[in-house]
Design a protein around this nucleic acid. Structure first.
Lengths: 356, 356
DNA sequence: ATGAAAGCGCTAACAA
DNA sequence: TTGTTAGCGCTTTCAT
């Protein structure tokens, strides 16, 4: 478990950390007195202020810092809060991690965020590791196999919440993908009509994401739902969740273009990563042509606002998700079937120019 | 230190974790035998294979997981590796964190990455927290006050490296900003000449970053160095490190534009965040005008490649930086004045179109 | 107002 | 081949 190529051992002069015993010996007090002073419980223990002051002074001078392993072992707590997440290096997940970090630190806990590469085996191994470190609770974000992880957590008596992707064995906090997709579809339709009022083919394509992914399914449902509600027909070929990969999305939009002979009236792109592929294709077209297509992206990236054509985006409320997850963890009774959906927000690609 | 709004306590049925004593009692063996089996040292301790097998079976059935706090306390190790970083939610830093995470986990250590918001007080508090948790070593990335942190680490005998921003009291691994800037300046000059060969005003502007920031200084030096070497004059007004904020950069490029009455021949933008502001301004200009300006950005973002004008970027080698930092930590003798510069890489904005 | 001592779960001598 | 024991640094009763 511990490092083989010994980093500690490399340094010959690693001085031992000072403990409450060192300080106790130095001033001729008992360890428990020192402990009480150094952990703030000295008022309650009615320790003389002068004693407290000297102890604090010595501790500061010696660079004392409490040993959380010892404290944690004794108190059966760790001060650590764990989170697993698919990737760190991703706009959405890194902002989720950032939100988790802020909330966690505001509770005087130390956040431990580990990425698991959308790999169920990695997820399980990581969860076990975090449990070994006695994390107080666990956030399972975007897990491929949330229920498998719940089993492990339950066996160890570890509280946990699913985030971003729901499970059935622990409460979940996710974005309201369905409603977000409805909103985005509506925005795209509006723009289609604004660009060319009157009768058109009304072909809006859904591109990107994985058909087996929960969120993608919800987004497709929302997409369908809105188009049906306004009576726009949707052929099967209009929905193409070709995967979470820029290249697939690029190939897909390219195919759509050659099938139609032109761009569709509108484009609903699922995720910034798919959007990257789409833009790579759009770049080779004349700008005027692209500007005549109503484009939306389910996800948000500041650079998308800076493209030379407007894109409506859906931004997820990461702070809201984390706050809600913490709220659930604090509840007395935990309902494993609870699924809380956090509303998303529509972000317009060109706010400075037009007011719709 | 530990959570006030008690998350553990909220759950009434938090079963106690099973320990080696539980397992020992169950099969009538001694705790040390169980311990040996469960931490893999049983072959060395010549424990009967059959005993080992039963213990492993029971442990798995009971969902045993080792208590790292107890082990760490005993072995004076934690299995935790710490990193502080300005932000998690940032293209560069999140990829740095990701690289750190991968290297750390490959050593069977658990990464703990905490962001400190470019705030020296926060940095110090965080470092103290991580030391309390007995991290094996510490990566100080982009710290505002690396030497202050080194003092704290030295007092506690904690090995550490500076990353991205150098210090004087511990070894540092940073990008070669000077050389990267020379390369980028050269690329911009090339493009200026390609766009309009022959005599021009040769005005290239440096925009973004903070004049007191180490990396910005190096990049300005590199910028100057290359332009001087080819005999292009630089006025003071051409270098405008107005801060790490998109709005400042936007204002700066706007000012440059009104002073000149047009865009400069070339633009050296320092950081993607400044670049965001620059693009926001460029968006309001006719595309042809922007395309006649040679633009470079010291930093990398995939979306920049997707803009409708070419941008040459400098990409930092985060994997190389982390690998080198680990190499330093493993050394026997640590030289606090060591500064290792990792080469950066030039990324061209429009590889599919032209080959220069 | 302070001290003594037990114990958290594990590892590492040392015994047997 | 396995058991016994001390102790890592802290908290927490219970004494004084």
């Amino acid at each position: 478990m511990l490092s083989g190529t010994d980093i500690q051992g490399a340094d010959m002069v690693t001085r031992k950390k000072v403990t409450i015993y060192d300080i106790a010996a130095e001033i001729g007090a008992s360890p428990s007195t020192v402990a009480a002073v150094l952990n703030g419980s000295w008022e309650a223990r009615r320790i003389k202020e002068s004693t407290a002051k000297t102890i604090q002074r010595i501790a500061a001078a010696r660079g004392y810092s409490i040993n959380m392993q010892a404290r944690g072992l004794r108190k059966a707590r760790s001060g650590l809060m764990g989170m697993i997440i698919p990737l760190l290096d991703n706009r959405f997940f890194s902002s989720l991690a950032q939100a988790f970090e802020i909330d966690t630190r505001s509770q005087h806990l130390c956040p431990v965020v580990v990425s698991t590469w959308r790999d169920p085996a990695n997820e399980q191994a990581t969860v076990r590791t975090l449990i070994s470190h006695n994390v107080e609770a666990l956030f399972l974000a975007g897990a491929m196999d949330p229920d498998g992880l719940s089993d492990i957590c339950h066996a160890a008596g570890i509280k946990h919440v699913n985030v971003d992707l729901p499970g059935t064995k622990a409460p979940s906090v996710i974005s309201d993908s369905f409603q977000g997709a409805v909103d985005l579809a509506r925005a795209i339709v509006c723009r289609v009509q604004a660009i060319a009022p009157g009768p058109r083919k009304h072909t809006i394509y859904f591109i990107g994401g994985n058909a087996s992914d929960y969120n993608t399914k919800q987004r497709i449902k929302g997409f369908h739902s809105h188009l049906e509600s306004i009576g726009w027909p949707i052929a099967l070929s209009q929905v193409r969740p070709g995967g979470f990969d820029a290249r697939f999305a690029e190939a897909d939009i390219c195919n759509v273009y050659s099938e139609l002979g032109h761009l569709p009236d509108g484009l609903f792109v699922n995720s910034t990563i798919a959007f990257e592929g789409v833009v790579r294709f759009l770049k080779i077209l004349p700008l005027e042509e692209v500007q005549r297509c109503a484009i939306g992206c389910f996800d948000w990236d500041p650079y998308i606002e800076l493209l030379h054509f407007p894109v409506t985006m859906v931004r997820q409320n990461v702070n809201g998700m984390i706050a809600e997850a913490y709220r659930i963890l604090r509840r007395q009774k935990i309902d494993p079937s609870l699924i809380i959906k956090i509303p998303t927000q529509l972000v317009n690609g060109d706010p400075p120019m037009v007011a719709e």
